[in-house]
Design a protein around this nucleic acid. Structure first.
Lengths: 190, 190
DNA sequence: TATTTACACTAGCGCTTGCTTGGTTACTTA
DNA sequence: TAAGTAACCAAGCAAGCGCTAGTGTAAATA
């Protein structure tokens, strides 16, 4: 078994697992289904992952790491203007969400299936990501771009953004950037 | 077995099932766990419900029916002012969401576990509820209380509201009405 | 060349799952 | 008082579950 490595093979298996977890849900996805999708037998799966839990953790870790680095890059690319940063953050959020949709759907809706250890470890990653948001929103409030309670405002924004995975159709006329811009327009004081 | 009835006993069992489904998730909730929570043996469960699926459907139906009638009542109580209607609808949404939290969490996050027949039946109920929202939002747009694409705006609002079940703590200082008012304030043009 | 490593296989163990069966008990109604 | 019915129970079946043990083999390493 590969301890905590990130071989290309394991990455590919993780990607396939994410897809199945979205289709069927974590609990209904059996190790036999996973193995078949990967083109191997169920026993062989445990050469790559210690147990089924570890596959879930790998999927979520992958997605959250990506989100974090994309958001950081997006924020660095724009100057200190609060409005630009708000736009950039919303765009980055939706960009990751749909570039890596399967992993994020799993992270959003199967988080509770993680065992306590994995959950604790991944919580730090998620907190680091949310800290970026808090920062951006605080600046927007200070600049009076938006109004309201900082806690509530950030929850509402993240809720609206995360919920998009339930209805957004990438083959439709709108791009993720369109969504981001429309949301920011909706909440900005005019 | 009781076919499609709503005996008090069955209603109570449905309530208990909703609680367990939230705690454990539908798939991880076994009929033995359900039975124990209800104070009966697992076999007896199937006197009240045809199968496990039917319990899930009962939970979701109960919650959605409540949401529909509360929203209708709230809208009838206020006059035709678009702003009042928007407030009323947001308040009604959160009122049901937390009065009947378990059922709604199940409806929001376990919907996909429904078999196709139950899903089709319950979709009509849900559509009826969402139609109320579309109506209210159209009026608000026409009155220029809010701006933007009607489709996107309604999705964002429902997303922000539904996501509250993931973070709202009823024992905290804020009431559901506070949340509703703050959200409406956030999206209203000033 | 000898040894290790990575990756896959077959076979199946021990357990849990949703659900069924056949029967009992307590209450209501004719 | 007899019949009917709603609610329950004990026992267990067949299928499916996660995971393990032991083995084979080709490529990389010493």
């Amino acid at each position: 078994m590969n301890v905590m490595n990130a071989s290309p093979r394991r990455k590919e298996l993780t990607r396939l697992a994410a897809q199945l977890f979205v289709q069927e849900g974590f609990d209904r996805t059996t190790v036999r289904m996973l193995a078949q999708e990967m083109g191997i037998k169920s026993g062989s799966l445990f050469h790559h992952f210690k147990d089924k839990q570890e596959i879930l953790a790998a999927v979520i870790e992958e997605g959250t790491q990506n989100a974090l680095s994309i958001a950081k890059a997006a924020l660095q690319k724009c100057d200190d203007d609060p409005e630009a940063r708000l736009h950039a953050m919303a765009r980055a959020h939706l960009e990751t969400l749909f570039a890596d949709r399967n992993a994020h759907v799993v992270a959003l809706f199967e988080w509770r299936r993680l065992d306590p250890d994995a959950s604790a470890h991944l919580s730090h990653l998620r907190d680091a990501y949310e800290a970026l948001w808090v920062d951006v929103i605080d600046d927007a409030l200070a600049a009076e771009l938006i109004h309201g309670d900082r806690f509530l405002v950030s929850r509402f924004i993240l809720g609206a953004l995360n919920w998009t995975v339930r209805w957004y159709d990438p083959s439709g006329p709108r791009t993720p950037d369109d969504l981001a811009d429309e949301l920011v327009a909706m909440i900005m004081a005019r």
